[in-house]
Amino acid sequence: MNPFDIPLQALLGQLLIGLVNGSFYAMLSLGLAVIFGLLGIINFAHGALYMMGAFGAWILMDKFGIGYWYAIVIVPIAIGVLGIVIERLFLKHLYKLDPLYGLLLTFGLALIAEGIFRDRYGVSGQSYNVPESLQGATDLGFMILPNYRAWVVLASLGTCLGTWFVIERTRLGATLRAATENPHMVQAFGINVPIMVTLTYGAGAALAALAGVLAAPVIQVTPLMGSNIIIVVFAVVVIGGMGSILGSVLTGLALGLIEGLTRVVYPEASNIVVFVIMAIVLVLRPAGLFGKEA
């Protein structure tokens, strides 16, 4: 297909979908980076937490009739608490070991979560309606902008910026960064580092769940959605490097856009374009675009 024959409307529509996906990549890779910074663990369960976030919203609606605006508060808190439990029960015991064990443990947890949901709900998708207040679309003149998609992009950008602000510009964030550099020193100043670590994992889990709730109305809610996205997010993290928060957000958004663009120009490659970019980055700039170390 000649790229100049593509109608502008279709191109913009795909770019918007790309931007929405990119927002999810950004939120998830941000959570991964924050958890990795403090815990030294790559959280394979991040995809499963995202999946449980989406399912949480769907179950609240389906079983209890509780709507979107309640779910967007309740579900992240519930998954955050689950994260705290996971950290206390399992991860706490692994910090002194090779980080590979953290990856393997969270992989096991992801398999458990996926298996339970697959047993209960099967692999076919559940659909979740866009909340009434965000239905419809706005005509921007050059394109029709569905309100919910705009909300997803704004909400996740806001969340990412908020996280960035807390970590880079507040006292709590300064302590957090200090604990990432040297936990023993920070502990010597009388700060309870283990609790901080626990809460960080909880916050990371809540962030993943929030992404899941935001995603519920724009995708099919299935038990497999977590493992599908987490591998792409790993590639995003390898491309961006985990050293910089804004770096991982930008990388996530950019890759979402590129994926959307590929879907217009050469749809067959849209599944693999992120991995191809990862390979190119590894060859040209092994430390990643924003990485500090190899």
Partner: peptide
């Protein structure tokens, strides 16, 4: 059925812990 994946995941957790 799907519990195979739960069992495999649980073995992972037990092995690592």
């Amino acid at each position: 059925g799907s519990w195979v994946s739960v069992i495999i995941g649980a073995i992972f957790v037990v092995c690592v812990m």
